[in-house]
Design a protein around this nucleic acid. Structure first.
Lengths: 331, 331
DNA sequence: CTCACATCTTGAAACGTTTCACAGCCGAGG
DNA sequence: CCTCGGCTGTGAAACGTTTCAAGATGTGAG
C-alpha cells in the first residue's frame, strides 16, 4: 500500500480510503490510485486488515464427510445464505475423525472466523462447548444440541413413522428395519418412529436387522440375511436407515432374482440423487437438506449479530416421503 | 498475550517463546505460562502471527462441484498430503460459476494462502494467470494447462480406448458412445480414444449419441434414442462418458425390460461408488482420483518451496478399466 | 573471589492495514 | 475582507504477534 501511495503521489490514508470509502475521495485522485494499484498488482493483505479490526467475513462448516452427498447439499444451502451476506464459507472435512475435527476447530478459532457450523464427529467433544464459551457463534447441524446451543435437525421419529405408515398403507404386514448401529441417535429415532406407526396400526413388532455401518455392502449382507429367513416369517417390505443400505439391498435382490417391489418392497432414507437413479427407483424419506443449510447459516448470523441477548433455538424440520417404484408395482 | 504475560508474571516475549520454541524456556516458567493460557482461555490470533511473517500454513482447493464424488475423492488425496505437512486445506466450491471462482481466488490471495489448487470452471479466466504471475503457486487439477503451469490430469484418450477395446474383445461390433457436449475436452478425448480403438481393430465408425449434459436424465433419454434405432443398426453395447449417464441408461433398459448385459452391454466412466452399487454392477473406467489429489498437492508444495527455479510439470496418469457385471453375463 | 560462559528472559521494532482527529483549501455569505 | 462550512487529503496510533539483540542470572573453572 505504501508503494501504491508513493506511485500515486498520495498518502497511505488516501489509498485506504479509495479501498474502503471511495466516495470520500475525489474522482481524479481515486482514478490515479486505482491505476497505481493496477500496474503494481497490489493485493490487500487480509491479515493486516483483520488485525486492525475488520472482521474476517468468513464462516466455516466443519463437515462430517464431504463424500456424502447429503452434507454437500447442506453445504450448498449454507453457502447460498452466506453468499447473500457477502460472506465466504470454508468447508473443512473432518472425515469423521474427532482428532481432525478438534484440529480444525482450533485453527478456525485462531483464524477468528465469524462463526462455525458443525456436524460433529464427536458431539461430546468439549472443544465445541469451549469454543462457544469463548464467544464463538456455533450452530450444530443435523445433530441435536442442548438448550445452550443453536441447532437444526430433521425429525427422524416422524421420518420412521412416515416410511412405515406408507408400507402399512399399501398392505404390508411383516416389515423389517435395516440399519445400525442402534447407538446412532438417528437410527434409534427412525426405529422409534417405525414402532410408533406399527403400534398405532395395532400391528406386531418390527423385525430389526442391525448393521454395523450404513453402507452399501451392509445392505447387501442384510439382503442375504433377509432371504435366509423362513418364508413364513420373512418380511415383505424393508425400511432401510439410509439409501446406501437400500441400494445394497436392491442390488442383492436383483442378484438373487427377486423382484422389487413384488417380492420385496424397499424404502430408503435421505433421498440422495442415486435413489431416483436406481434401476428400480427407490421410495425414500427426503430431508430438506438445502433448507437445513440455509436455516443453520441464518441462525449463525443471528447469533453473530445478536450479541449477548441472543436466544438459542433448536429448529426441527419435517421430512417428506417420496414414493417411487420400489414400493409400487411397475405401471 | 499481554494478559497471559501479566498473569504469569513474565514478559510478552516469553509467552511467545512458550508458544513457538518451548525448549528455550525453563520448565518452571513454561508451566506457569501454560496454566495462565489455560485459565484465561487464550487463543493465538492467527492474523497477527501471519502478518508478522509466519506463513499461513494453508492451502486451498477451488473445486468445480463439491457434490460430484469424483472431486471429493480428489480433495481427500489433497488433504492427505497436506495433513502430512501440517498444512490445512480449505475447500472452496465454485459450483461451476466463473464469478464465484473469481471471487474465491481474490479472497484466497488476500488471505495469502500458501498455494491454490483449482479445477477451473472457466479455464480461460485471466485471474488464474494473474494469480500465478504475482507469485502464487497454482496447480490445475483434472484439466490441462500450458507449459507455464503445473497440472495433473488423466489420459482420457487412453480411457476411451480401454473401454472400447474391452467391448470389442468380448465380441461387440456395433458400439455407441453416449456423452456430450463434444465441446468438453474430456468428452472429445474419450471419443477420440474410442475411435482409435475401433480403427486399430479395423472396425467401422462409432455411433455417437450426443447429450447436452453428463447426468442421469440424459442417460435415460439416450436409452430411449437407442431403443428407437432400427434393430439392424442398433448398437449392442454403449460406452458412456460418465457413470451418471450409464446409470440412467441402465435404469431405462430395466424399465423397458431389456437385459444388461445380454441385450445391451454398458461401460461407464469414473467408477464412482454407485457404479459398483448399481443393480447390475457397472463396468467402468476408473481414474486414480486419490493419487491425482496427492500428486497435485505435492506439485504445489514443490512449487511453493522451489522458489524461482521451479520447473512446471504436467503429470498425466493412466486410467484403468474395472470389469463388472454390466459387460459380462451373470455367473 | 573473579571471570567466562551458558541459560533464560526482556523490550522494542516491525509486519500492513484502518481509523480518526485534524489541516488545507475553496467558495459562499455577511 | 473575514468567517464558516464542506470537501479532500494527511499522519500517526493501534491491532497482536514474532524476532532478535541485549540484559540478567546462574554455574563452573581458575
Amino acid at each position: 500500500m505504501k508503494d501504491v501511495a508513493a506511485r500515486a503521489g498520495v498518502s497511505l490514508g488516501t489509498v485506504s480510503n479509495v479501498l474502503n470509502r471511495p466516495e470520500r475521495v475525489s474522482d481524479r485522485t481515486r482514478r490515479r490510485v486505482e491505476t497505481a494499484i493496477e500496474t503494481l498488482g497490489f493485493v490487500r493483505n487480509e491479515s493486516a486488515r483483520q488485525l486492525r479490526g475488520g472482521g474476517s467475513r468468513t464462516l466455516a462448516y466443519v463437515v462430517l464427510d464431504t463424500s456424502n452427498p447429503f452434507f454437500t447439499d447442506v453445504a450448498r444451502g449454507i453457502q447460498e445464505t452466506a453468499d447473500a451476506q457477502g460472506l465466504v464459507v470454508y468447508l473443512c472435512n473432518s472425515g469423521d475423525d474427532p482428532h481432525r475435527q478438534a484440529a480444525y476447530l482450533d485453527l478456525l478459532e485462531q483464524q477468528r472466523v465469524e462463526g462455525v457450523l458443525i456436524t460433529p464427529a464427536d458431539a461430546a467433544d468439549p472443544g465445541i462447548a469451549a469454543l462457544a464459551r469463548r464467544g464463538m457463534p456455533v450452530v450444530v447441524v443435523d445433530r441435536g444440541a442442548g438448550p445452550d446451543r443453536c441447532s437444526v435437525t430433521v425429525d427422524d421419529v416422524l421420518g420412521g413413522d412416515l416410511a412405515t405408515t406408507h408400507l402399512l398403507d399399501i398392505g404390508h404386514e411383516r416389515i423389517a428395519f435395516i440399519g445400525g448401529p442402534r447407538a446412532l441417535g438417528q437410527v434409534a429415532d427412525r426405529i422409534a418412529g417405525a414402532e410408533r406407526a406399527l403400534a398405532r396400526a395395532g400391528r406386531g413388532a418390527l423385525t430389526v436387522l442391525e448393521t454395523t455401518h450404513l453402507d452399501v455392502s451392509e445392505g447387501r449382507r442384510a439382503g442375504e440375511r433377509l432371504i435366509g429367513l423362513p418364508a413364513a416369517r420373512r418380511p415383505t417390505a424393508a425400511f432401510c436407515a439410509n439409501d446406501l443400505l437400500a441400494l445394497g439391498l436392491l442390488q442383492q435382490m436383483v442378484r438373487l432374482g427377486l423382484r422389487v417391489p413384488e417380492d420385496m418392497a424397499i424404502v430408503g432414507y435421505d433421498d440422495i440423487e442415486f435413489a431416483e437413479a436406481a434401476a428400480v427407483p427407490l421410495t425414500s424419506v427426503s430431508q430438506p437438506r438445502h433448507l437445513l443449510g440455509r436455516t443453520a447459516a441464518e441462525l449463525l448470523l443471528a447469533e453473530a449479530h445478536g450479541g449477548a441477548d441472543h436466544e438459542h433455538r433448536q429448529v426441527v424440520f419435517d421430512p417428506e416421503l417420496v414414493v417411487r417404484t420400489s414400493t409400487r408395482p411397475h405401471p
